[in-house]
Design a protein around this nucleic acid. Sequence first.
DNA 1: GGAACCATGACGGTTTCATGACATTCCGAC
DNA 2: GTCGGAATGTCATGAAACCGTCATGGTTCC
Lengths: 223, 223
Amino acid sequence: MTSVLMIEDDDRIRRSLALALEDEGYAVRATATAEEGLAAQKQQPADTVLVDLMLPGLDGFDCIRELRRHDDVPIVVISARNDTHDIVAGLEAGADDYLVKPVAVKELSARLRALRRRARAAAPVPALVFGNLEIRTLAGEVLRDGRTVPLTRTEFRLLCELAEHAGMVLSRQRLLSRVWEYDFGDERLVDVHVARLRQKIEDEPGCPRRLITVRGMGYKFQR
Amino acid sequence: MTSVLMIEDDDRIRRSLALALEDEGYAVRATATAEEGLAAQKQQPADTVLVDLMLPGLDGFDCIRELRRHDDVPIVVISARNDTHDIVAGLEAGADDYLVKPVAVKELSARLRALRRRARAAAPVPALVFGNLEIRTLAGEVLRDGRTVPLTRTEFRLLCELAEHAGMVLSRQRLLSRVWEYDFGDERLVDVHVARLRQKIEDEPGCPRRLITVRGMGYKFQR
DNA sequence: GGAACCATGACGGTTTCATGACATTCCGAC
DNA sequence: GTCGGAATGTCATGAAACCGTCATGGTTCC
């Protein structure tokens, strides 16, 4: 079953839409504020998030941006505001679709299906396996020859970022921005952590098979 | 640049929307019938397809289903019909989004961006293939007969620049400016790097098949 | 035949990396 | 709070790879 998280401050709309979606076969959780919604999604991620724009406290745009920082979940805006300006802003913030209230549940349901059709194709793999190396992205652990390798948080995130784009060269800038969320900073930092990672996951010291340096460009994870 | 194929039978709408999208930076091709559109997409695939529902001959729903049989391209319906029933049918047929005419170009553009953001995540790694030579631009690697050829950064960028414009003569000045980001400088520099590249990717020494010198003009990559 | 144009080997200077050592920050235990 | 260890970031160093220049000799054009 598809799970949906709805973030909507109007009690009546929240309840009626939740009921209607449940009739359509969705598992619905609902919160009245962005803060609660973000916490709920962090704790137990839903397959799709519906979000209103006008929310008390953190508004819908901020909520979308915050979700997008860590999550690739499909996001649908449901708002009473129907100016082109708001629609564009919502989509630019990272939403995938935008519906104007009042929404037809059948239409919403069809749009959710269309969205999931796409999202599934790009779904993140819960575990990445490369030879003797297994990276359990969700469990946060890495196995080498079946034994867990103790990685620090930074090392783990760096490895995930590289392995999720296996075969692709990632620049130090990009790694800094994705792993450290620095938009600037010393690129040498990446080198140091790659070196530490190598000592933990490479089989032959001094001869990296997985974490390849591409001189002048960055690093890549070799399948 | 993003390319768009528009299938729309109303001449006025087709022309004005095409112009507006071009202003937004899209490369637009447009056809008046589904049959033409399908042929165009088969021959030279666009990144996104816009399709009207009411078309003479094959209608929009059929057109979407036919596209979906072979192609995972994002499809947006643009229709005057705004019943929930039509919207659901359009999405169920395989469309990713549905806009009701008249469309705001800014909104359309934002929706296209949102759609491409998702579609890109699932896209395979693009590569340029010429006979026994495969250039993986993102992986930063070049395969010759399936084996990777170690290229330096400059060599790689030079090769990409030439191969991306295969068949076209590029002047030394242009190469300097694109590969080295020099706006002036010794043109001999290009020669030296072409020579090094030849030693790595040409099969017969002394008889270049790929990297062709065009005397007095520059170099070109021969397919 | 001469002039312009091009190919390529060699070399020194520079850039780029890998990594060990050290300072700082973070975080849980008490 | 504060103590201690782990995690993280900064720096310095040496080694390796790379780049641009130049010189020489070959080729093409008129």
